[in-house]
Write a protein that binds this DNA or RNA. Sequence first.
DNA 1: CGGGAATCGTTAGCACGGCGAACGAGTTGT
DNA 2: ACAACTCGTTCGCCGTGCTAACGATTCCCG
Lengths: 142, 142
Amino acid sequence: MTLPTDPALASALRLSVMRLARRMRAERSDSALTLTQLAALSSVERLGPVTPGELAEAERVQPPSMTRVVASLQDAGLVARAPHPTDGRQVLLSVTPAGAALLREDRRRREAWLAQRLAALPADDRDLLRDAVEVLDRLAAQ
Amino acid sequence: MTLPTDPALASALRLSVMRLARRMRAERSDSALTLTQLAALSSVERLGPVTPGELAEAERVQPPSMTRVVASLQDAGLVARAPHPTDGRQVLLSVTPAGAALLREDRRRREAWLAQRLAALPADDRDLLRDAVEVLDRLAAQ
DNA sequence: CGGGAATCGTTAGCACGGCGAACGAGTTGT
DNA sequence: ACAACTCGTTCGCCGTGCTAACGATTCCCG
């Protein structure tokens, strides 16, 4: 076992995740959207008509942070706002046809940096990462 | 297998890593340094006397980005600069006693957010992450 | 039914940390 | 000796987190 204790694991994992996140953020050049915008757009599609607050919670950011991201997506014509039918304070967000098309195109164009990198790994490592994704999500949850 | 194809894995891993990185960045409150500063300080210690350029390369960041981080560490008295013995353009960075003490303290104080989180996981998941760290590093490398 | 409390989203302002362009000091090569 | 290169820095930009505060709306209770 190369990393015997939990503190060492915490340290190593923290550095690895930060480094990979930074690296991925730098590889966004093939898309018009940043990773943050893309994640938000994807969540809007997945959650159906959704309020900004719910979206912020889903992405685990504070509402003001999400306000700005949503505004950029709306400016780009990728999401639309509608008034809530019964509660005048709330707003409902949904994906426009252009937004849906961009998501399809983004999913289709998957010879992206990370996918290429993954393809270069041994199959065993990919299997390992498939399982690790679940654990990482559990770490980030709550 | 819940994630059969590589594109799906790339997508899931990307989201997970970004989310966890964001989450960890928000949990830095127990330390005086940000994660970026701490990573840079750790690299200065590990690499011995090191030039800013080498340090930027090690952290996979452009030199201007590292200049600012190093300046903050120097302002905090954690790293020191010395002229290069033969090349007047270069600068050599090293950790001060205060910097080394901070690194020791930081490694000792490991009941941090991530370590607590990890301790709450089943042992199997920790073993999985130990292996995954190596793969993540390979993804971020080069 | 009316008014204070709570909720929702936004605005404003701050900090951090990436980036590229440009520049000065120093080195190297012709 | 002088042009070309290298190294680090400065400058300004952008994206993306945060908190505090605020207006609009809704809810609840007296």
